[in-house]
């Protein structure tokens, strides 16, 4: 089913060499606060959910950048801000050096051809009343690319086969397809406009184990073939290690650690990253019997009223008095390895 048969698939080493140095996307001091309002006539803001609370990172051309964390850490909101589906409270987002908040409607529409998204749930992200061909062709129709219906159909057929589907699927409806096939349709739709940058928001977490690998391999093959840059948002740390060049770990709206992928997994420094990695079981009973199963206490606090100082301090094994008041800055501990903790 995959586009390139298994042994021919490009090895990771050559992939990293494709990564350029110039950033394609830069996020600076991004904050996204959602107001909580009370009252009907005299609406007033009573509190705020600090979904994203001052994060900065950049993504290089050709790179796959992983954003990981548990539910509610702000990873999806970050993606939505980049897509301009949310108006950020504060901070800037630069795509190819242009501040995207300052674009007018026409320019934003042009930008949306370059930035596409693949959603988590292949069951709700495809319109059940549209045929697969219409779903994949719609972005081209909306943006006025390929106005000629015949050419558009040919392009749809091409996209379907790129994504490992039979071009005959163009005449089917989403309910006639399995989850894995639907996710391939979602990927085909994202590719329709030849984007440079794709935000993958949990693209494989709704899929079964054997189908997950098919879709992961497809995403990798497409990245290599079309030189795509991915922002890969996921909670599955094993999938992120497999795919990403660099990874940022988020907790309660903040980035707590950011490093090259293997460096982060082999030498996690932030106590939250360490606990997160220790919690993931490895499919090997031998290794599991030797691992120490330290369990992090407590739960993620509410982002409405996050803890003072370091947001992780109530659950942190290293916390000292100062962590209650001092907000730790993200600092570079080793070249390229950034950690927001004062105690390491």
């Amino acid at each position: 089913m995959s586009v390139v048969s298994a042994p021919e698939r490009t090895e990771a080493v050559t992939v990293s060499s494709v990564v350029g140095n110039e950033p394609i996307l830069e996020v600076k001091g991004l904050k996204m606060y959602f107001p909580i309002s009370e009252g009907v006539v005299f609406t007033r803001k009573v509190a705020e959910v600090k979904a994203v609370d001052g994060i900065s990172f950049h993504i290089r051309k050709g790179e796959t950048f992983g954003l990981v964390g548990e539910s509610g850490c702000g990873k999806t909101t970050t993606g939505r801000c980049i897509l301009q589906l949310e108006q950020a409270t504060e901070g800037q987002i630069f795509f190819d050096g242009v501040n995207i908040a300052e674009l007018d409607r026409r320019e934003l529409s042009a930008l949306r051809q370059k930035i596409q998204v693949i959603f988590q749930d292949p069951y709700s992200s495809l319109n059940p009343r549209m045929k697969i061909g219409e779903i994949i062709g719609e972005p081209m129709r909306v943006h006025g690319i390929e106005p000629d219906a015949d050419k558009r159909h040919a392009r749809v057929a091409e996209l379907l086969s790129i994504c490992g589907l039979d071009p005959k699927f163009a005449d089917r409806y989403p309910h006639e397809m399995s989850g894995g096939q639907r996710q391939r349709v979602g990927i085909g739709r994202a590719l329709a406009l030849n984007p440079e940058f794709i935000i993958c928001d949990e693209p494989v977490s709704a899929l079964d184990v054997s189908i997950q690998a098919q879709v992961i391999n497809l995403l990798e093959d497409l990245r290599d073939e079309f030189g795509l840059t991915y922002l890969f948002i996921a909670h599955d740390l094993s999938v992120v290690r497999h795919l990403c060049h660099r990874v940022a770990v988020m907790y309660l709206g903040k980035i707590v650690e950011l490093a090259e992928c293997d460096e982060l997994y082999d030498n996690p420094i932030h106590p939250y990253t360490q606990a997160l990695l220790a919690a993931v079981p490895v499919p090997d009973p031998e290794i599991e019997s030797k691992r120490e199963h330290k369990v992090m206490k407590g739960e993620v606090p509410s982002p409405i009223n996050p803890p003072s100082g370091c947001v992780f301090h109530p659950r942190c094994p290293l916390a000292v008095e100062g962590c209650r008041s001092v907000v730790p800055e993200l600092r570079e501990i080793k070249p390229g390895h950034w950690v927001a903790c004062t105690e390491v």
Binding site: E11, A12, V13, I216, S238, V239, R241, V280
Partner: peptide
């Protein structure tokens, strides 16, 4: 077919 936490990137 499962990606593993203890496998290097790109395995």
């Amino acid at each position: 077919s499962v990606p593993r936490l203890d496998h290097k990137r790109g395995t």
